[in-house]
Nucleic acid binder design. Structure first.
Length: 922
DNA sequence: CCTAGAGGTAT
DNA sequence: TAATACCTCTAGGT
């Protein structure tokens, strides 16, 4: 079966495809599809600017420099909406000039009697023109003529050339331009409600055809232009005469036949009517300085837009603009990329023939269906530069199956989007993947680690400016009539092709940003390990889970009833809003810290309130919070139990901007540990049948060790070299006492301080953490830096370097870009500074444990051990030990984790074993 | 059904 | 006014 599809919208699919294949980024012109009818959007600049001015609040749009921008903002927003909705290929804006026109010379009162232009409007037209220049949209004004004439001329030219024309004007005279090719958008109210007026709409409203609208306006008059009409004649009468006599000429010919008072009135004001008609007639054959073809819609001058919008302080609008043009450019760029046709292969020979004929990188896209909580592969698309094949796993015979399996596993270079998910879906079919040199969801992440999403369509949009149809919504249970699967195959090939393009695009960027090594040697191999860990899951004791749920529910209910009793009525304890009423109004307790919705009821505040007032309700509320949180957590775990009785979390390799993993569905990286009750949750995670025990290995103070390494601080390095208790050592130096005289209060202070440093601590934050005065905290910081000057110098240097480079780096060269370091917004800038302090430390720790995981997995495999890695919790690995392998595995884990980085200080690893995760803790 | 806010868990 | 995550509930909207 042969299918052809392009990475573009419907309109472009029908257009002839260019066979040339320029860079996806080259997009001088867009929206113009060869063979499609051009569509011209003409705007009346002044009338729309005025509409915008009165529609937007003046005082809300003032720049710091004092320039009013409400009309500019409103106009630009309206224009973007028009471009989005109308999808024009050409756009032009016509403006009036202040100079006299042939109309005002003809009739000096023309447009007289208008209110003086408001002061705040001054200068806004010039700004609109500047916005148009930045957007590369031509503007036209002609001395002695009005914008209406320019519009009439343009629309006539457009129509003559066979184009569609859309006129946007707040002047009703434009209605005379309406034909089946020309429509007018006339704002009803403000600038947000601009319904299209076509011939039918004009007739419905005025009872005359658009061509006769000027006749009607001449009779009725136009207050806005100070053109009096015939007294006593309104639109109804005028329309009646026009339809009766076929227009003004007919009316004049039969003028004596019109009786009544209105007839007399008409005869008395006949000259006014003739003048009105003369003035409202729009010129259609002006000489214009801009040719029709020159109005073609181009991509905006991004630098100019940036600069101008900075000055105008248009931030949301900037985003809207770039979003819009991102999309539009994509359409055009997409039109130049032809997705190769694909063939559905049904035998091994066909697959092998394709493989033989295909050179270079091949994208693999796995089509899967959801089965329970997992995904199972149903088909595989292999996409090369020139051609593609699809293998349906459901119908493949054994020979095809093994040919496919062999190729997938081979070293033939492949690119995948979401390698880990592909591996998981394939594994249920007994398939795997070898030779994967790129996963675009990971390379995209390494290039730009703080994006929210790395979906293929989004990466394609952002980097390639190519958009393609959204992924098929997996309609499980729907009848598969062949058409459905054909559509899925098309999409799979499409996705594969986009991944191929992205991979090519990313390759040099990865090199530039020194991320190619990270991808190849760290993230890609890690993805395979994570896939295995996710598939394995961790065993759960359902008995313990049930007991826990019961206990927590009981505790929760007891606390709830006691809380109700303490205040004499019921209240939703889970509603901060209702709690505020009880605490601060009903019980009139002291006010806590202010939050958006009033006063906080968080745990720290409740504790403070309880100490202050001793109110029973507070004690019960706190007990209820703890119990309900735990119950909720246990319930969530129960819901995520798979059919095999195990919990399979999913690790996200591209979510945390520092390089850490994250865990979700369910999150197994935030299982309680700090309280006795909380630790019971850890007890539900147990060793699987047939295995000996769980082993938990964690790095001791890895972030502080990285701090010591990065700062090179002699004191810290010495402390670690001597194997001292770090906090005791630091405490003895900061407080000037012997190590054995460091009290636990002193120790906990320096501990909080040390950890705070890695988060970009402030004296204020430290004072709150330690419940001490800001002064005391400040002294603590000073004393700390006096003794550990290397740390202070390092922290200063990190921010300085990041400001210079634009990014921070980890020990493995993982970068995080921080443009906000030079923001003028203090809050943003200071946040960026704290991020700059934290990212190298947190990120280096992430690099290290990832290396350790690679080492552990490699050793387990090399030594043919049956023990396996189950979980990772940032600085901790959980393994399941096969009988007889404990000592071997323990040693190799310690060795691999310890050797994962070569730092100036040793990496210490603590290991515990037990039959549950809690027991394995230490 | 979606979203913001509040609150809480982990490293 | 201390970094990185994920999750759930309420309340107020579509």
């Amino acid at each position: 079966m042969m299918t052809r599809l392009a990475l573009v919208s419907e309109s472009a699919k029908t257009a002839p495809q260019s066979s040339a294949s320029p860079s996806p980024l080259a997009s001088p012109v867009f929206g113009l599809q060869e063979g499609a009818t051009p569509r011209l959007l003409v705007l009346d600049g002044h009338s729309m600017a005025f509409r915008a001015f009165y529609a937007m609040p003046v005082d809300k749009f003032v720049t710091q420099a004092g320039q009013y921008t409400n009309a500019v903002h409103g106009f630009t927003a309206m224009l973007l909406t028009m471009i989005r909705q109308q999808k024009p290929t050409h756009v032009v804006v016509a403006f009036d000039l202040d100079t006299p026109t042939f109309r005002s010379l003809d009739y000096t009162e023309y447009k007289g009697g208008r209110n003086k232009t408001p002061e705040e409007f001054y200068g806004q037209i010039d700004l609109i023109i500047k916005v148009m220049e930045a957007m590369r949209i031509p503007t036209i004004s002609v001395d002695g003529f009005e914008a209406d004439d320019i519009i009439a001329t343009l629309s006539t030219q457009g129509e003559t050339a066979g184009w569609d024309v859309v006129v946007v004007s707040g002047d009703r005279d434009a209605f005379q331009l309406i034909t089946d090719k020309v429509s007018v958008l006339y704002p009803k109210k403000g600038i947000s409600d601009i319904p299209p007026m076509d011939a039918a709409a004009v007739e419905a409203k005025y009872f005359v055809s658009p061509a006769r609208y000027s006749d009607l306006a001449a009779l009725v008059g136009e207050t806005a232009d100070n053109l009096p009409g015939v007294p006593g004649v309104g639109p109804k009468t005028a329309a009646k005469w026009i339809n009766l006599y076929g227009g003004l000429e007919g009316i004049f010919e039969n003028i004596d036949a019109i009786g009544g008072k209105v007839g007399d009135s008409l005869r008395a004001h006949i000259e006014d009517v003739k003048r009105n008609r003369r003035l409202n007639h729009l010129l259609r054959d002006m000489e214009l300085p801009v040719a029709l073809e020159d109005t073609v819609l181009q991509s905006p001058d991004r630098d100019a837009v940036e600069e101008l919008f900075d000055a105008l302080e248009f931030n949301q609008l900037r985003k809207r603009l770039f979003d819009l043009f991102g999309e539009e450019e994509a359409l055009d760029a997409g039109a130049t990329h032809e997705v190769p046709a694909h063939q559905l292969v049904s035998d091994a020979a066909a697959l092998n023939a394709w493989v033989e004929a295909t050179t270079g990188l091949v994208a693999v896209d796995v089509v899967s269906e959801k089965v329970g909580l997992a995904h199972e592969a149903t088909a595989v698309a292999l996409v090369g530069q020139e051609s593609a094949v699809v293998v349906d796993l459901g119908t493949a015979d054994a020979a095809l199956d093994s040919a496919l399996a062999a190729w997938l596993l081979s070293d033939a270079p492949k690119v995948v989007h979401e390698y880990k998910e592909a591996l998981k879906a394939l594994s249920v079919r007994g398939l795997s993947l070898g030779g994967v040199v790129d996963d675009t969801s990971l390379s995209g992440y390494l290039i730009q680690p703080d994006r929210r999403s790395y979906e293929l369509a989004e990466l394609s949009q952002v980097h390639l400016k190519v958009s393609f149809e959204a992924e098929a919504t997996a309609d499980a249970g729907q009848l598969d009539l062949g058409l459905e699967s054909e559509k899925k195959y098309d999409e799979a090939v499409q996705r594969g092709y986009v991944a191929l393009l992205l991979s090519e695009y990313f390759a040099p960027l990865l090199q530039e940003r020194s991320a190619a090594v990270l991808l190849r040697e760290l993230e890609l191999p890690l993805a395979a390990i994570l896939a295995r860990m996710e598939l394995t899951g961790i065993d759960v004791s359902q008995e313990r889970l049930a007991v826990l749920l019961d206990d927590f529910t009981t505790a929760m209910n007891a606390a709830k009833e006691a809380a109700y009793a303490a205040i004499g009525h019921e209240v939703n304890l889970g509603s901060p809003k209702q709690l505020q009423e009880v605490l601060f109004e009903e019980l009139a307790l002291p006010k806590t810290k202010k939050i958006k919705t009033g006063f906080t009821t968080d745990a720290a505040s409740l504790k403070w309130l309880l100490e202050k007032t001793g109110h029973e309700f507070l004690a019960q509320l706190m007990a209820h919070r703890e119990a309900s949180k735990l119950k909720q957590m246990v319930e969530t775990l129960k819901k995520s139990l798979a059919e095999d009785g195990r919990i399979h979390t999913t690790y996200a390799q591209n979510v945390a901007a520092t390089g850490r993993l994250s865990s979700n569905n369910p999150n197994l990286q935030n299982i309680p540990i700090r309280t006795e009750e909380g630790r019971r949750v850890r007890d539900i995670f147990v060793v699987s049948e047939g295995y000996e025990c769980l082993l938990a290995a964690d790095y001791s103070q890895i972030e502080m060790r990285i701090m010591a390494h990065l700062s090179g601080d002699a004191g810290l390095i010495q402390a670690y070299a001597e194997g001292e208790d770090l906090h005791r050592y630091v405490g003895s130096h900061v407080f000037g006492v012997a190590p054995e005289d460091v009290t636990s209060a002193m120790r906990s202070k320096v501990k909080a301080m040390s950890y705070g440093l890695a988060y970009g601590l402030t004296s204020f934050g430290l004072s709150k953490q330690l419940e001490i005065s800001v002064d005391e905290a400040r002294t603590l910081v000073k004393d700390y830096f006096d003794r550990f000057g290397g740390v202070r110098d390092y922290l200063r240097g990190v921010v300085e370097q990041a400001r210079k480079d634009g990014f921070t780096s980890t020990i493995e060269g993982r970068r995080r870009y921080l443009p906000d370091l030079s923001s003028s917004d203090r809050q943003l800038r200071e946040l960026a500074e704290r991020i700059a302090l934290n990212s190298p430390i947190q990120g280096s720790a992430a690099d290290i444990i990832k290396h350790a995981m690679l080492g552990v997995a490699a050793q387990l495999q090399a030594q043919e051990l049956k023990s396996r890695m189950l979980l990772q919790v940032h600085d901790e690995l959980i393994l399941e030990i096969w009988p007889g392998e404990l000592e071997t595995v323990k040693a190799l884990v310690i060795a691999q984790m310890g050797a994962a980085a070569d730092l100036l200080v040793p990496l210490e690893v603590q290991v515990g074993v037990g039959s549950s995760w809690n027991d394995a803790g230490h």
